[in-house]
Design a protein around this nucleic acid. Structure first.
Length: 220
DNA sequence: TAGGCCATCTGGTCCT
DNA sequence: AGGACCAGATGGCCTA
């Protein structure tokens, strides 16, 4: 787990070490750790193989270049650390959003926490189910109104049999199905096109659910 | 112990 | 240039 962190830290230490070397005499250049990739990359082979430069100009050039490379490396490392921090925060906010989503979804009977993918699939199914509830309630309302006015035959609604996104939207991963024991969920979705072995779906007839059932604390 | 899930790091790419 | 986003890699933890 810590390999990356170790890399960062080892880079840091080696980088500091190299910078110190650079500031000191050239003799210390030869004492750099063999495990220090930074030291290797920052000091060309010719410099490492050759003896200490007596030419002051050459020394200055090498010092200047090495310092520059070390500085660039430090800047890069700092950017990486900052990017890691941002990425961590980004993933945390994503997880927070998923957690918020979990809280508005109906709880599973055994209180098992939904995984990320299950949460997303469940939310997808849930939204579809609510939409269907609204649609069917609306149709029934109109049907009742029509009955009051004049006898009118409407097609018999069979939600799950209808060719709709429902079959896919109701599908559950097999891992979710194993934890389901509530009558609120069925364990098969024969019409689902998804190629999964087991499925958990809402009650076949979504009309059995009121909004109160779906959304705790919400009444209509 | 294998497999699933997850957190984190990392480098690449795109966007502002 | 720097930040956001993404996907791959890696290692830890948990469970069947």
């Amino acid at each position: 787990m810590c390999t990356a962190m170790e890399t960062v830290y080892s880079d840091s230490s080696s980088c500091d070490y190299f910078m110190q070397d650079d500031e000191d005499s050239c003799s210390s250049m030869h004492t750099s750790s063999p495990s220090s990739s930074i030291g290797k990359s920052a000091s060309p082979a010719s410099d490492r193989q050759g003896s200490c430069a007596t030419d002051l100009g050459q020394k200055k050039r090498r010092r200047g270049r090495a310092r520059n490379e070390a500085t660039v490396h430090v800047v890069k490392k700092n950017r990486r650390v900052k990017a890691n921090d941002r990425e961590r925060n980004r993933m945390h906010s994503l997880n927070d959003a998923l957690e918020t989503l979990r809280t508005v979804l109906p709880a599973f009977p055994d209180d098992s926490k939904l995984t990320k993918i299950e949460t997303l699939r469940f939310a997808h199914n849930y939204i579809w189910a609510l939409s269907e509830t609204i649609r069917i309630a609306d149709i029934e309302q109109r049907q009742n109104k029509s009955r009051a006015d004049a006898p009118l035959l409407l097609p018999n609604l069979r939600v799950m049999d209808a060719p709709s996104p429902a079959s896919d939207a109701f599908s559950w991963s097999s891992s979710a199905s194993s934890s389901s024991s509530s009558p609120s969920y069925c364990t098969s979705s024969p019409s689902s096109p998804a190629a999964q072995n087991d499925y958990v779906c809402f009650q076949t007839d979504v009309r059995q659910y009121s909004y109160h059932n779906f959304v705790p604390g919400m009444s209509y």
